[in-house]
Amino acid sequence: MEADILRGQYVDPSDKTTVVEYARRWAAGRAHRPTTTRRVASLIKTHTAATPLGSRRLAAVVPSEVQAWAADRAKVLAPSTLRNLVGLLRSIYAAAVLDRLVGRSPVVRVSLPSAHRDRVVPLTVDQVRALAKAMPARNRAMVITQAGLGLRLGELLALRVQDVDFTACVVRIEWQFAPQSKMRTAPKTPRSRRIVPLPQVVADTLHGHGADYPPADDGTVFTTRFAGPYRHDYYGSLIFGAAVRKAGPPKSITSPRCAP
Score class of each variant (00 low, 15 high):
residue 126 D to K: 08
residue 127 Q to H: 15
residue 128 V to P: 03
residue 128 V to Y: 07
residue 129 R to L: 14
residue 130 A to F: 12
residue 130 A to K: 13
residue 131 L to M: 12
residue 131 L to D: 02
residue 132 A to D: 00
residue 132 A to M: 03
residue 133 K to P: 10
residue 134 A to S: 12
residue 134 A to N: 06
residue 136 P to M: 03
residue 136 P to C: 04
residue 139 N to F: 06
residue 139 N to L: 10
residue 140 R to V: 00
residue 142 M to I: 01
residue 142 M to D: 00
residue 143 V to W: 04
residue 147 A to T: 05
residue 147 A to D: 04
residue 148 G to D: 05
residue 148 G to I: 00
residue 150 G to A: 14
residue 151 L to T: 00
residue 151 L to D: 00
residue 152 R to P: 11
residue 154 G to K: 10
residue 154 G to S: 13
residue 157 L to H: 01
residue 157 L to M: 04
residue 158 A to M: 06
residue 158 A to W: 08
residue 158 A to Q: 12
residue 159 L to A: 01
residue 159 L to Y: 00
residue 160 R to Y: 14
residue 160 R to W: 05
residue 160 R to M: 12
residue 160 R to L: 15
residue 161 V to N: 13
residue 163 D to S: 08
residue 164 V to G: 14
residue 165 D to P: 10
residue 167 T to P: 10
residue 168 A to F: 01
residue 168 A to L: 04
residue 171 V to D: 05
residue 171 V to K: 06
residue 171 V to L: 09
residue 172 R to N: 13
residue 172 R to L: 11
residue 173 I to G: 09
residue 174 E to Y: 04
residue 174 E to C: 15
residue 175 W to F: 13
residue 177 F to K: 01
residue 180 Q to F: 14
residue 180 Q to Y: 12
residue 180 Q to E: 15
residue 182 K to N: 04
residue 185 T to E: 11
residue 188 K to C: 07
residue 188 K to T: 15
residue 189 T to Q: 08
residue 189 T to V: 09
residue 190 P to L: 06
residue 192 S to N: 13
residue 192 S to D: 11
residue 193 R to D: 10
residue 193 R to L: 07
residue 193 R to A: 03
residue 194 R to E: 07
residue 194 R to A: 13
residue 194 R to Y: 11
residue 194 R to P: 15
residue 196 V to T: 13
residue 196 V to E: 09
residue 199 P to L: 00
residue 200 Q to W: 14
residue 200 Q to D: 08
residue 201 V to F: 07
residue 201 V to M: 05
residue 203 A to K: 13
residue 203 A to G: 12
residue 205 T to N: 07
residue 205 T to S: 14
residue 207 H to C: 11
residue 208 G to T: 05
residue 209 H to L: 07
residue 210 G to L: 06
residue 210 G to R: 06
residue 212 D to I: 14
residue 215 P to F: 00
residue 217 D to R: 09
residue 217 D to K: 13
residue 218 D to W: 04
residue 218 D to A: 02
